[in-house]
Write a protein that binds this DNA or RNA. Sequence first.
DNA 1: TACATTAATGACTTGTCAGTCATTAATGTG
DNA 2: CACATTAATGACTGACAAGTCATTAATGTA
Lengths: 224, 224
Amino acid sequence: MKTFPPSFSVSAPQPVTRTPRRRRKEARPSELTAAALDLFVEKGFAATRLDDVAARAGVSKGTLYLYFDSKVALFKAVVEEGIIPLLAAAEQQMAGYEGSSVELLRRLLLGWWEQIGATRLAGVPKLIIAESRNFPEVAQYYHDTVIVRGSALLRRVLERGIASGEFRPLDVETTIDVIFAPLLMLIVWRHSLCVCGHDNDPETYLQTHLDLLVNGLCPQKEAS
Amino acid sequence: MKTFPPSFSVSAPQPVTRTPRRRRKEARPSELTAAALDLFVEKGFAATRLDDVAARAGVSKGTLYLYFDSKVALFKAVVEEGIIPLLAAAEQQMAGYEGSSVELLRRLLLGWWEQIGATRLAGVPKLIIAESRNFPEVAQYYHDTVIVRGSALLRRVLERGIASGEFRPLDVETTIDVIFAPLLMLIVWRHSLCVCGHDNDPETYLQTHLDLLVNGLCPQKEAS
DNA sequence: TACATTAATGACTTGTCAGTCATTAATGTG
DNA sequence: CACATTAATGACTGACAAGTCATTAATGTA
């Protein structure tokens, strides 16, 4: 990753193996947010050093501050770039859907897993869960721009299913949170508690969750 | 919080308004763990300053180090004192239970809520979820002493229910985690994301979770 | 090639906090 | 009371990291 001075001499004379400066105003911001996402995911928000973010993006810390006012601003940019577009796409897709509500719910949850849960982006919600207490500004921003909008998607599915009689009438607002909790805990397990060996197979976990959700714990009382 | 010399003179001649030292070797440890629990819950593990823990317990930081080798040791003591006894009690209770498995599951989850989730102790699992990545030693300790033992309780309930035909045959290990996830997320909401207004009524939340668990999302197909 | 513009740098300032240790004083005993 | 024991103190150290800014040098233009 880094350029070390080789212990044997090479044809090109490298003064101190320092790559020359490059002026790349356009490319810096996205390179910095990409580096930041990696490190936020790996170490958490508080534990990520901006020196490291800058180094991974191939610049110095001073340069980072040229493009982002603060650590918080950098995080907001990561969310803006990584999550918001996915939300917009999901809203689009759902608008045109015509099948059953059970299937729609399944697609929504599995889609979230594929596009966020199973990717580097999963670090973002994990980080919010872990650190919002210490960074209320960050939490507020994420709540207003992501959670509210994501909840609305689930709300539509549930209301749709209840209206069509596919679902029992439930407390929709509470059910949204109950349904989503296992997905969030799945990424928490995979990004935090993994350190102590305990781990789940995500496929099995999601299947089990959906199965419990749709069918419950008890056998269908067909013969009653 | 701190004792300032008053700018006007007071009848009682307070040299610098400093309470005299007291030697209370016996009482210190539990006073310190109590103070630590409060602050860990409020601020998280990393963000809790040992100066503050000591101050809340009415001693200086040096005294804290007289009784605990490190911040991690202090945390372990908090778990040892707060959580382990509850686990032991739950195991005891469950051994003698004779009713239905649905009812046993309900009692287990609601009992967890009453004794941990709704109390100051809820901060402990929340803290593990949030910070295990940065403190693997802490996570490992908690996994080995609490999570493994708690999972065993749920496992017994599920196996009992499956054996009696009350529950469908399921992947028990995965189901344990899926069932517990919403409870953990509930305390995360209440201890972290509360900062941004979003909040649930715990009673409704738990009822909804149990209802979904036992009955699922769809109406019972009685007439099929 | 000479020069103006400004992207990029990294040493520095400032503040925080875990953990240490020489000093102080509370308490029991003879 | 005199004094030994040891609980308690808090100033200090060392390490770390966010944010700043005077300096450096890449690049385009005349």
